[in-house]
Nucleic acid binder design. Structure first.
Length: 583
RNA sequence: GGCACCGUAGCUCAGUGGUAGAGCAGGAGAAUCAUAAUCUCUUGGUCGGCGGUUCAAAUCCGUCCGGUGCUACCA
C-alpha cells in the first residue's frame, strides 16, 4: 500500500434550483465520489466536499414566482438534492450550503482581505432597471426584438435565434423577463470589481506548471481567458438574496448589494470543510492553510495535502481564474488546487441535456429506471473526459446488459450457484493452486496495478475498461478450469476452480466498490458475511496471490438474487418514447 | 462575428510522427456451471475533404466542410 496521504476533494457545486440531470452528475459529483471512495479504500485520509450553490438571481426570481422567500426555496431544494445525492450513493463528508453562516463569515473575510490589499475597486456600470419590478435586471432577464434578425424573444445577452451577442440596449421594445413590464430603463449602479488583470502573470505561471497534470480541455480554456486578456470582474450584484456587502468595505457605498454568486460559491468549499472539521474535532486549516504569514506558502498546507477539484468545463474559468485570484489576493497562505479534473458535456441522443427544455434524464427519473449503481457504472465508463460523449438508450442497455448483467453479474451467480449445487454451499478447500491459477494471478496482478494507476490519475474511462477486463479474466479462467467437467472425475480439481472462482468474486467486490458500492456490498455478502468499518471496503493489497487465496474453506456461500436486471428491447423503445423530449 | 474543442470500423470510443486499435453489434465454432449468461476464432476503416512539411502524417502546418461550446451581468 502507498504511504498515507491527505486528499481533499471538492465537486463543483450543483445549483440549488431544480433536479440535476445526468450530465451534471457525471461531470462533477459522480467522479468526485468515485475518486473519494477509491482514496478512502486505499487508506488515505480523505475529505470529500460538496454543497448546493444557493445564491444568484435565478433563485430570487424563482422563489418570487412560487410566492415564498429565497431561504425557504433553498431549504426545499437543498433537501431534494441531499436526498438524491444519498440515493446515488454520493458519500460526501459534508454536503453543505453556500448560504451557510460559515460561508458568510469566510466570504466576508476574503472580501475584506482583498479590499485591504487594494485588489478591489469601485466602478459604476450601466444596468437595466425595471421600475415596475423594483429591481435591476441581469442582461438575460431583459427580452426584446433582436436588431439583427428580428427574433422577438431575444435575450439581452444573446439572441438564441441568430446566436449574436447582444447588449440589453440593443434590443428593440425591451421588456422585463420577470414581469413583462416595458418600462425597462438604464440606470447607473456601483459595484466592486476584482482586479483580476493584476494576476495575469502569476496565473499563467501557475497554469503552465500544471500543463502535464491537467487535461487539455482545462488548460486550453484557462489559457484562452489569459490570452484574451484578463478583465477585472464585478463581484457584487443588485440583489437582496446573497451575502451582503458590509459597511466597512467602500464606506457603505454598496449598501443593499450582495456578493456575486461566483465570488462566494468556491469559498464554500472552504466553509463546508470548516463545518466538517468543527463537527469532528479537527482543524480545517490543516487542509486549507499553510504555515502562518508566509506569502511564499500559497498553494502549500501545513500537512501534505493533495487538493482535487472536479467540474464540468463551464466551471473551469471560475476555478482557474476567479477563485485563484481570490486566494492569491488575500495575501494569506490558502491552498490552491493541485489537480483540476474537467469534463466535457454528456449529450442526450445527439443533442444537449437541457434543464429548461426538460430534455434528457434527470436524477430522480433515472432511479425509476435503473438502480443507482447501474447508472454510476454506465456514466463513469462513458464519461465525457476527452471530448463530449453521447447518451443513447440502446448504448445504455447494451452496456448494462453485457458488462454488468452478463460479464459481472452472471459470473457471480455461476460460481456461487455451482458451489451450492456441488459443494454443499461451503467454500471447498481441497487441492492446491496449479499453473492455471498462477497464470491468472499474474494477469490479475498486472491488471489490478493498471486499474489502480488509472484511478489514481482519475482516468475513469480507461479505469473502467480495465475493471471490465478484470471481470472478463474471471470468465476466461472459469472456462479453462471447467469445474463442471472435472467434478465428474476429479473432485479436488473441481474444488480448485470453485475456490478460485469464489476468491475472484471476493476480489471483484473490493475493486468494484468505489464505482458500485451497493452492488459490491451485495456481492461481498454472498461469500463473506462480514462488514467493514465505516462502510469503507478496503483496496486489494499489492499481494494479489494472497488476495486470491484469502477466503477460509468451509465458510458458507449464499448466491445472491439476480444482481443486475437486463433492459429489454421493448423497454428501450418505451424509454425512447418517454424521454425523447423536444428534439 | 471572434475564439476554443471535436470529426478514426455500423455504434461508443482509444491512439498525437514510424506497417490502423478496443468494446459492442455482425459471422463461424466450442462449452452447458450460470440471468441463453460464457469462451475461442473472425468480417468491417483510402483515420471529414484538399494542399503542404518529412525518408515517414490519423498524428505537424495551411485551408475548406461539418458538429459543439464559450464570448466575462445565467450558473
Amino acid at each position: 500500500m502507498p504511504a498515507k496521504k491527505r486528499i481533499l476533494i471538492t465537486s463543483a457545486l450543483p445549483y440549488v434550483a431544480g433536479v440535476k440531470h445526468l450530465g451534471n452528475l457525471v461531470g462533477s459529483m459522480l467522479p468526485a465520489d468515485i475518486f473519494a471512495r477509491f482514496c478512502r479504500a486505499r487508506g488515505h485520509e480523505t475529505v470529500a466536499i460538496c454543497a448546493t450553490d444557493e445564491h444568484g438571481a435565478p433563485i430570487e426570481l424563482a422563489a418570487l414566482e412560487e410566492g415564498i422567500g429565497p431561504r425557504e426555496f433553498c431549504d426545499k431544494w437543498h433537501a431534494v438534492q441531499k436526498k438524491l445525492g444519498d440515493d446515488f450513493g454520493l458519500a460526501w463528508d459534508n454536503f453543505g450550503r453556500s448560504s451557510s453562516p460559515a460561508n458568510h463569515e469566510l466570504t466576508l473575510h476574503f472580501a475584506r482581505q482583498l479590499w485591504k490589499n487594494g485588489f478591489l475597486e469601485l466602478k459604476t456600470t450601466k444596468q437595466a432597471y425595471s421600475p415596475t419590478d423594483g429591481r435591476f435586471l441581469p442582461d438575460r432577464y431583459v427580452i426584446g426584438t433582436c436588431p439583427h434578425c428580428g427574433y422577438e424573444r431575444a435575450r439581452g445577452d444573446q439572441c438564441e435565434n441568430c446566436t449574436r451577442v447582444l447588449d440589453p440596449v440593443d434590443l428593440i421594445h425591451p421588456r422585463s423577463a420577470v414581469s413583462g413590464a416595458q418600462d425597462v430603463e438604464i440606470r447607473d449602479s456601483t459595484h466592486l470589481f476584482l482586479k483580476q488583470s493584476q494576476f495575469a502573470g502569476k496565473l499563467r505561471n501557475w497554469i503552465e506548471s500544471h500543463k502535464q497534470d491537467w487535461s487539455p480541455v482545462v488548460t486550453s480554456i484557462a489559457f484562452k481567458w489569459l490570452d484574451e486578456g484578463l478583465r477585472d470582474r464585478g463581484i457584487t450584484r443588485d440583489l437582496e438574496w446573497g451575502i451582503p456587502v458590509p459597511d466597512d468595505i467602500a464606506d457603505g457605498a454598496l449598501k443593499g448589494k450582495v456578493f456575486y454568486v461566483w465570488f462566494d460559491a468556491p469559498i464554500e468549499y472552504i466553509a463546508a470543510t470548516k463545518e466538517w472539521a468543527d463537527r469532528n474535532g479537527k482543524d480545517y486549516r490543516d487542509w486549507w492553510q499553510g504555515p502562518a504569514s508566509s506569502s511564499e506558502a500559497v498553494g502549500q498546507t501545513k500537512k501534505d495535502v493533495t487538493y482535487w477539484e472536479f467540474m464540468g468545463k463551464d466551471n473551469v474559468p471560475f476555478h482557474t481564474v476567479g477563485f485563484p485570484v481570490t486566494i492569491m489576493g488575500s495575501g494569506e497562505p490558502w491552498k490552491l488546487v493541485d489537480r483540476l479534473k474537467g469534463f466535457n458535456w454528456l449529450n442526450y441522443d445527439g443533442g444537449k441535456f437541457s434543464t429548461s427544455g426538460k430534455r434528457g434524464i434527470f436524477m430522480d427519473k433515472a432511479l425509476e429506471i435503473a438502480p443507482a449503481d447501474v447508472w454510476r457504472y454506465y456514466l463513469i465508463a462513458n464519461a465525457p473526459e476527452s471530448s463530449d460523449s453521447n447518451f443513447t438508450w440502446e448504448h445504455f442497455a447494451g452496456v448494462v446488459n453485457k458488462d454488468l448483467a452478463d460479464v459481472l453479474g452472471n459470473f457471480v451467480l455461476r460460481v456461487t450457484k455451482f458451489c451450492v449445487a456441488r459443494f454443499d454451499g461451503k467454500l471447498p478447500g481441497e487441492g492446491v493452486y496449479g499453473d492455471e491459477e498462477k497464470a491468472l494471478i499474474a494477469e490479475l496482478d498486472r491488471r489490478i496495478k493498471t486499474y489502480t494507476d488509472y484511478l489514481e490519475a482519475a482516468d475513469f474511462r480507461k479505469a473502467m475498461g480495465e475493471l471490465r477486463a478484470i471481470w472478463v479474466a474471471g470468465n476466461e479462467y472459469l472456462t479453462r478450469a471447467a469445474p463442471w467437467t472435472h467434478i465428474k472425475t476429479d473432485r479436488d480439481r473441481a474444488a480448485i476452480g470453485v475456490r478460485m472462482g469464489l476468491n475472484l468474486v471476493h476480489v471483484f467486490a473490493h475493486l468494484t466498490w468505489p464505482v458500485m458500492p451497493e452492488l459490491a456490498k451485495t456481492i461481498h455478502l454472498a461469500i463473506q458475511p462480514v462488514g467493514y468499518a465505516n462502510g469503507v471496503v478496503p483496496w486489494v493489497d499489492d499481494d494479489t496471490a494472497a488476495a486470491l487465496d484469502s477466503l477460509i474453506p468451509g465458510q458458507p456461500i449464499t448466491p445472491p438474487e439476480v444482481l443486475v436486471t437486463k433492459i429489454t428491447d421493448e423497454q428501450v423503445e418505451e424509454l425512447k418514447a418517454r424521454f425523447g423530449g423536444a428534439a
